[in-house]
Amino acid sequence: MDLKYVKQLLELVEKSAVNEIELEEKGQKIRITKSPNVVSSGQMMQPMPHQVMMPPPISVAAESAKPAETKKSEEPSKKYHEIKSPIVGTFYRKPSPDSPPYVDVGSTVKQGTVLCIVEAMKLMNEIESDMSGTVVKVLVENGKPVEYGQVLFLIEQ
């Protein structure tokens, strides 16, 4: 499987509505999924295109996070306001392990209320609500990794 072929496959999947494709050819397996981990190879350690081995840059993660996120919020989230993560990192619902969470389902929030922290490289990013309303859903567990653009909270106006 040469690199050109893999590149063509990547482009094909990227442009199509297909989210995942798996191919096996001469004992070599390749699977391409539209997730932050763009490609995972099969049993052969075939050299992969450079971008495949690299951590996804934030901008790429942003694009690839989008399909997943629309899929996730098939519920009536249209009328809810989504609070998304502005960066890749670890999601914290509370300022320290012993503190109560910043907000819970049912909490009333104002514009500027701190909802959570996303930590990356010891940079603690306080995410504030950009509208007033009530928290109707918390979509991520405390301490879990989040992607750029991943929906963290749903707020009802």
Binding site: K122, L123, N125, E126
Partner: peptide, 10 residues
């Protein structure tokens, strides 16, 4: 200790 303040995505 670095802290940032985001208003939504900004």
């Amino acid at each position: 200790l670095l802290e940032s303040v985001y208003k939504g995505m900004e």
